[in-house]
Design a protein around this nucleic acid. Structure first.
Lengths: 212, 212
DNA sequence: GTCTATAGTCCGATAGAC
DNA sequence: GTCTATCGGACTATAGAC
């Protein structure tokens, strides 16, 4: 946990593993490659983390712990619902920007052959959903809350927020751009506008053929 | 490609590989495991597909070819923009429902150590984005089109559409439900409403603190 | 805490028989 | 087209020295 001095062997392993797991995938990354880059030996992984799988879980833990505290701080606290959503999106995107590889690793890896990992993720996601359900949903007027189905909106919003970071190598190629500070300037607010008001915005009813 | 008779060895390998790649990941799945379930031998993979990587790419090709034809059929064709979006969401969700493992495989796998796969995906995504940009975007009135940034909306909408299928094992656990026909009855339209009108819907302006 | 060496397993690819 | 047998290498985990 040292913030200033040189990173410990354990910290170096965690950093390198995050990058390689995100880029190549958990299974495709060998311990040899991790410890070679981290300047350590294979035995250090099992000494400090217990196993390769436990190393993965400890990295995922960093992500989900941070996401939980972001949810508590932004969906809870003061302010009207829209302000909270905007605050949440800004905080999440800021975190994702600083840790794009952790995001990819924690969201993408869902291996059925490691049931402990799947259970771990389900447990952590459930805790975050609870924060949303308990501190945010009750604030909404009944007319709006009635059509918010968390089992649909939850993954949809999470997908909208995270997919940029999951697909970034492809997106850079598709749109022939590198994502710099200017791009991210209003990124969170654009996504918040999309989720809250939709692509057509409130004034676009003339396009509508909706029934309800 | 035989639709009615018994599947060929090549088809059986493709089916089993799709399931295992989606569940365990490409790297974690060995050719031996695939061919054992498919009732074939390792040599058959290299005979019919060329290599393990080529097998993965040929499976991804099925997904992206179908997504491209869905885009052409639904975003193109007749009707006002909203109808096209709704049509597109319904077709995509119907396809995802029938092939959840293909979706997970094609979207999730993005291994930096297989640059050919990354390039292949970028090429296919670009073609689909082109369909959207050429057949759909020009239909929108300028007031709406002005704030549609494809490099932001594209991945966001794709993430909203697909994340349910990518995370389904976790979601079943988190929400203590199995996703049956009743759940999917209005799934595509709910997502279309979310993307077009937002979670707050048009009438909810009283909640707003937005600036623009 | 950190290392080296190694055990035991599995990997993808291919040669060659049929 | 399909198989078996095999090659060379990589894998995770751990024993044991320091």
């Amino acid at each position: 946990m040292s913030m200033n001095s040189e990173p410990s062997v354990k910290e170096r392993i965690a950093q390198v593993a995050t990058r390689l797991f995100a880029r190549k995938g958990y299974s495709a990354t060998g311990l040899r490659e991790i410890v070679k880059e981290a300047g350590a030996s294979v035995a250090m992984v099992n000494y400090h983390f217990g196993s390769k799988e436990a190393l993965l879980q400890s990295l995922m833990d960093i992500f989900f712990t941070k996401m939980h505290s972001i949810a508590v701080d932004t969906l809870g606290g003061d302010g009207p619902p829209e302000l909270r959503v905007r605050r949440h999106f800004r905080a999440a995107i800021a975190f994702f920007r600083q840790n794009p590889e952790l995001v990819r690793l924690a969201i993408t890896e869902l291996p059925h052959d490691l049931p402990g990992i799947v259970e771990f993720k389900a447990d952590r996601v459930m805790k975050i959903v609870s924060v949303f359900a308990n501190t945010f949903l009750p604030l909404l007027p009944e007319t709006i809350r009635a059509h918010i189905r968390p089992e649909i909106y939850g993954p949809a919003v999470m997908g909208a927020l995270s997919s940029h970071f999951l697909l970034r190598p492809v997106l850079e190629s598709v749109f022939s751009m590198s994502f710099d500070d200017a791009f991210y300037e209003n990124f969170a607010d654009e996504l918040a506008d999309l989720v809250m008001y939709g692509a057509l915005r409130a004034g676009a009813v003339e396009l509508s053929d909706r029934k309800d």
